[in-house]
Design a protein around this nucleic acid. Structure first.
Lengths: 183, 183
DNA sequence: CGACACATGTAACACGTTACATGATTTG
DNA sequence: CAAATCATGTAACGTGTTACATGTGTCG
């Protein structure tokens, strides 16, 4: 994942690790705080696989930089990755979904306990989502956003709205089920 | 992730690994083909962490079963997990998003090359999504679906629709940009 | 002096994923 | 006989994540 993101950035321009972190985070609109260590490990793996190489650029006063650039193999790899769409693009294997699923299936507190876990979770999750959506919209206000980043934030907003719709459905269903059980 | 899914299933009823795989996959509507090996490694980790224990149930003719059940610690852990909503619920760190982002940033083929990668990708991805959505809707037809599974599939459909809206936006933007550049 | 920016990295761990190994029974 | 089902597991690998280590320069 990060692999290809770095490959993509390097395809536009050779860069060193510390710089890649900054560029990447900015491009992501600050939604993916990236540990610098991971950048270096990922770069090391890319180099191991022959997709990038680097040149050491000495600096006086400041530490040396290792400027990475794509090899022909790296460019090929990147192009191939970009040419095939993501397979099975809807991942139900996400914390959000699994959590709601488990909440509606699990027997918390043992049999006979008053089951209020799921509705509580849904309500809390809606608050969480509303907050997340608000923050995304706040970020989108910035007129200086690069277009790709703005696009990304739009995707996030659309997803957040879709999830909120779903959580509303869940809430309604749970209410129904609770009423069913009381009858 | 799978950790908690298994905890949830076990909280309703003690089960053995082979059985867990089947129950889990059915609950997920077949959208997460689960390697049986992963079930066993995950169960081993849960046992290591003291969240589950097991009892060996000998069978004649068939191999022994190791029936797992929650420990009190496991139950606590599960309840805590269920009680807190997913933080930062919208993940932009997904192949889909990163791919589109990288496609719009990367300089494939070097400077001066005719950049048609991104539009091609978007188009292919839309086809992929349309197909995925169709399959989800097909699955939803089944009237025998358990409610939690039906809910899950509804989430998947809503997300797929949101993503498709976004891909349409992307396509329009790319067209715009291309026109801009030609001027 | 202490904190922060610059710049590199290693070590350890969790988790998902695949492939492989074992061995009995049932079914075509 | 071959294949599928039942049932267990191990080994290896990729990747994400965090924490830690190191060292210089600048700024308040």
């Amino acid at each position: 994942m990060l692999r290809y993101a770095l490959l993509g950035l390097l395809s536009a321009e050779p860069r060193y690790g510390y710089e890649l972190k900054a560029v990447f985070e900015e491009l992501l609109g600050g939604t993916w705080p990236l540990n610098i260590g991971q950048v270096y490990t990922t770069l090391a793996r890319l180099e191991r696989d022959g997709l990038v190489r680097c040149e050491v650029v000495p600096q006086d006063l400041l530490p040396d930089r290792k400027v990475y650039f794509l090899t022909p193999e790296g460019e090929t790899e990147l192009q191939e990755w970009l040419s095939r769409p993501t397979q099975g693009p809807i991942h139900l294997r996400e914390e959000l979904f699994i959590k709601v699923l488990v909440a509606s299936v699990a027997e918390v507190g043992g049999p006979g306990s008053t089951e209020v876990g799921a509705p509580n979770l849904i309500a809390a999750q809606r608050r969480e989502h509303v907050q997340a959506l608000a923050q995304i919209q706040r970020l989108r206000q910035d007129p200086a956003l690069p277009r790709p980043t703005a696009l990304l934030l739009e995707a996030a907003a659309l997803r957040a709205e879709a999830d909120l719709k779903w959580l509303a459905v869940c809430e309604r269903e749970m209410g129904d089920r609770k009423r069913d059980e009381q009858l």
